[in-house]
Write a protein that binds this DNA or RNA. Structure first.
Lengths: 252, 252
DNA sequence: ACCCCATATTGGTCAGGCCAATGGAAAGCA
DNA sequence: TGCTTTCCATTGGCCTGACCAATATGGGGT
């Protein structure tokens, strides 16, 4: 061990892991690039190979590298990059994903929801109406409505995926801005669309539930595209037309 | 190594770290309590001491334990449910969510995929065939096939949601176990199902792509339910029948 | 009751060995 | 010539055994 004096009362693996993280930050190894081999790092830093392994495990657990047996340790994420999931997602992408996935969830919920859950969803429709009348209304009831339907699928993987898409609306700056812009323009949840979803659920009709949910979210998408349109002129109109074609081709 | 059959193609330290996390969650060691010594854990789990150290480092980096030299590893925080996304999800839930969502993604990909992307997907079908012929084959090409289709939607929110569902297969212990059980029973990706998906994509037919993808994932679900069935008798059969009814009602 | 010392226990790191997995180059075949 | 297969070097994975530093514990002395 050459630089014992530079150690800061830490264990060796922590010292080495810290050094490797600095190198990652400096861009010494690009994303997708491979770290030197254990044997090479051990020689380079004058430590034993198990100590190198321990340091690399520390990087691995933090998600900076992935280890491929027989091949090496590859950089999958640089430290310090925006760790906020969905940072670069657009409102369009999020809402389109919701359109497809929440349609399916509504269909499944139509076959699985209990009477108590349907009553809860009906109560949330009433609360959306109340929020619409409040000038300072937020979207809590709207979110709760969608998540109650996802919960009624009785599939936690579906629920988590949809909850996560809702959370992404706030995480993605672009999406949060655009939704705020739509809200400022007084775009509110349309009660008739929510009621149509509720009716289909109560009728236990999966296809109608899917269609109603998708019609609702297509309208949300339209309002977002409308909010986008007044940001540019001809280019935005063409892009909007193409985007509308996407989800209509799939959602029917 | 006592329970090699329960290993899920992970490295030993990850296997052991997962087991220790389970014990932490079960409250076997309270906050402030001390884990058994490295030598003791090595004996108990029939692994070497360096392997124990690696597992404990993984816990340490995640903030669950703190290591005091000469004293031991002390619990400073118990893993919460929120710390390991999908820890409690079942293989059924994950696969059912994939069936619904990947069906939609395939439909959208049929309208958006470039020729290059379709060629890549075709190459991955070939690679799945190659993996199927290898007795020690893994599922890398299968995963890549599904993610390539999700990528071809050109919607990062859809891609991330589907990638996350794939990752959950390994995070959820039950799902990882069940998939390993299916693999041990020589359940392999069925090439005709993948080819049918590819054909529908190449035909740019969204409805066919959705149907083909859902047929494929329904077969995966069936194989998982089959793997489940031999765990119990009458109760499992009834539960399985009910589970099959779920996704058939929605997927058509 | 408090302090000191010796010993046992703990984690830290190393060296060396062997095996499985991977990737690239070379050889073989059509 | 191009494709496939085989071989080998390199890679990580895990183990055994050794020794050292740090800590905890128990016993003895004041």
């Amino acid at each position: 061990m050459q630089d014992k004096s530079a150690r800061v009362n830490d264990r060796l693996y922590q010292d080495l892991a810290r050094k490797l993280i600095v190198e990652l930050k400096e861009g010494k190894y690009p994303v997708g690039g491979r770290l030197p081999a254990e044997r090479e790092l051990a020689q380079q830093y004058d430590v034993s190979r198990p100590t190198v392994r321990e340091a690399i495990i520390a990087l691995e657990v933090q998600g900076f590298v992935e280890v491929r047996v027989g091949s090496g340790a590859y950089v999958i994420q640089l430290p310090g990059k925006a760790d906020i999931p969905g940072f670069d997602l657009s409102a369009f992408e999020i809402t389109e994903a919701r359109l497809l996935f929440e349609g399916d969830a509504a269909a499944l919920a139509a076959t699985q929801a209990t009477d108590e859950e349907l009553a809860e969803i009906a109560g949330l429709v009433d609360e959306i109406a109340r929020e619409n009348r409040d000038p300072k209304g937020q979207e809590k009831a709207d979110r709760a409505f969608h998540l109650a339907i996802a919960r009624a699928t009785r599939n936690s993987a579906i629920f988590e995926a949809i909850e996560r898409l809702w959370d992404l609306r706030n995480t993605s700056p672009e999406a949060a801005l655009l939704h705020e812009k739509a809200r400022t323009a007084n775009v509110k949840p349309v009660l008739e669309e929510h009621t149509a979803v509720l009716r289909a659920l109560e009728a236990r009709d999966p296809a109608a539930a899917r269609d109603a949910m998708r019609a609702h979210l297509a309208a949300v998408l339209d309002s977002l595209l409308f909010a986008t349109e007044d940001k540019a002129v001809e280019r935005a109109r063409d892009a909007t037309r193409a985007k509308r074609a996407r989800y209509r081709a799939v959602a029917g």
